[in-house]
């Protein structure tokens, strides 16, 4: 039995899982920064309408 497919599969699974785990916080950071920006814009609009 050739061992090569098992080696490839093991490293592929490792790469996919660890890459996903590393990229997930970057996606969440984008969302969090967008939410903060939205809050700032809302506050700016409220200030504009008050004045």
């Amino acid at each position: 039995m050739s061992h090569l497919p098992f080696i490839w599969a093991a490293y592929s699974v490792g790469t996919i899982v660890l890459l996903w785990c590393a990229l997930a916080p970057l996606v969440r950071k984008r969302v969090a920064l967008r939410d903060i920006r939205r809050l700032i814009q809302l506050e700016e609009r409220h200030l504009d309408s008050d004045s």
Binding site: C21, A22, P25, R28, K29, A32, L39
Partner: peptide
């Protein structure tokens, strides 16, 4: 590296309305 990245995002999410967060956007 991953732990610090995740902790930074959690801080942003929890401190969404705090003043210091506005400065990092």
């Amino acid at each position: 590296a991953n732990l610090l990245s995740r902790a930074r995002v959690k801080l942003l999410e929890q401190d969404l309305r705090k003043a210091w967060v506005r400065n990092v956007v």
